[in-house]
C-alpha cells in the first residue's frame, strides 16, 4: 500500500505552486479575451463618459479639465475591481467552481492575485485611454513624474475596490451582482465628486463624502497631479488601507461560510 503514496506529506510541504499563480493569471486573461462582449464595454465605459461629460461639456475650461482628468482616472479605477471580483466571484461561487478549487489544493493567493492583476491591467488600460484623451483633446499638461504618480495611484487604487467587490461577490447571487454593484458604483462615484467638484454640489453631499473610498483616492490623485485637494494624503491612504483590510476580512469570513 505504501507504494501508492507517491506524494508523501513531507514532499508536499516543500512544494511551492508558483506555476499555479501563472496559470490562474493566464486563465483570467483567456476569459477576458474570449468574452469580448464583457471586456470591451467595461474598458470603454469610463473613457466614453469622460469624453461626453468632461471634454465636450467643459470645452475650453482648463481648470475643469485638469480636475476632471484626475477624478475620471479614479472613476476608471473603480469598475475593474468591483466588477472583476464582484461578478466573477459570485458566478464561480454559485456554480461550484470555487468549491471545487477549494477542495483541490489551489493556493488561495493564486486565485486572488490573478483577479487582482487583471483588475490592475484593466485600470491601467483605461488610464492610458483617459490620459491620451486628456493630453490631446483636453489640453491637460502634466510633467512625467505626475503622469507616473497618477499611474501608480491608479494601479494601487484598484485594491480597495477589489476587496469591496470580493465582499459583494462572496455574498450576493450571480444574477443580482451586476445590478448591486452598479447601485454602489455609480452613486458612489457621484457622491465622491468624480463627475463634478463637490463644491458644485449641495453642502451635505460634500460633508458625507469622507465616507466613500473614491473620495479619498480622488484627493490623492489631485495631490499627485498638482491640483487642489482636501485633507492629508497620509490620512487618505490610511483610510483606503483600512477599508481594504476590513472588506477583505469580512469577505474571507463570508466565503468560509458560503458552502
Amino acid at each position: 500500500m505504501n507504494a501508492t503514496t507517491i506524494d508523501t506529506p513531507a514532499a508536499n510541504d516543500d512544494f511551492k505552486p508558483w506555476r499555479a499563480y501563472v496559470l490562474e493569471a493566464k486563465c483570467e486573461v483567456l476569459r477576458a479575451l474570449r468574452t469580448p462582449a464583457f471586456a470591451i464595454p467595461s474598458l470603454l465605459f469610463p473613457p466614453l463618459f469622460y469624453l461626453l461629460f468632461a471634454l465636450l461639456l467643459n470645452r475650453g475650461n482648463s481648470g475643469a479639465s485638469h480636475y476632471l482628468f484626475a477624478t475620471y482616472s479614479i472613476f476608471g479605477v473603480m469598475a475593474p475591481g468591483l466588477f472583476g471580483f464582484g461578478v466573477s466571484v459570485a458566478i464561480e461561487r454559485e456554480r461550484g467552481w470555487l468549491a471545487l478549487k477549494r477542495v483541490a489544493p489551489m493556493p488561495a493567493g493564486a486565485y486572488l492575485a490573478a483577479k487582482m492583476l487583471m483588475a490592475m491591467a484593466f485600470a491601467l488600460i483605461i488610464y492610458a485611454m483617459l490620459a491620451t484623451m486628456a493630453a490631446t483633446l483636453g489640453g491637460v499638461r502634466l510633467d512625467a513624474v505626475q503622469w507616473l504618480a497618477l499611474g501608480l495611484i491608479v494601479m494601487l487604487g484598484v485594491l480597495p475596490f477589489c476587496a469591496l467587490g470580493l465582499m459583494i461577490g462572496s455574498r450576493v447571487n450571480a444574477s443580482a451582482s451586476p445590478a448591486i454593484i452598479n447601485f454602489i458604483y455609480l452613486p458612489m462615484a457621484f457622491l465622491s465628486g468624480l463627475w463634478m467638484p463637490l463644491t458644485m454640489l449641495p453642502k451635505f453631499i460634500g460633508d458625507i463624502a469622507v465616507a466613500w473610498p473614491p473620495y479619498h483616492l480622488a484627493q490623492l490623485a489631485l495631490a499627485a497631479t498638482g491640483g487642489e485637494y482636501a485633507g492629508s494624503p497620509i490620512v487618505h491612504a490610511a483610510y483606503l488601507a483600512a477599508f481594504t483590510v476590513i472588506c477583505f476580512t469580512i469577505a474571507k469570513r463570508w466565503l468560509a461560510r458560503a458552502n
Binding site: D7, P9, N12, F15, C27, R31, E92, R95, G96, W97, A99, L100, V103, A104, P105
Partner: peptide, 13 residues
C-alpha cells in the same frame, strides 16, 4: 493534496 473530488452541481468556467 492527497484527495481528488468530483462534486455535485459543479460547472467549470
Amino acid at each position: 493534496r492527497r484527495i481528488g473530488a468530483m462534486l455535485q452541481a459543479t460547472s467549470l468556467p
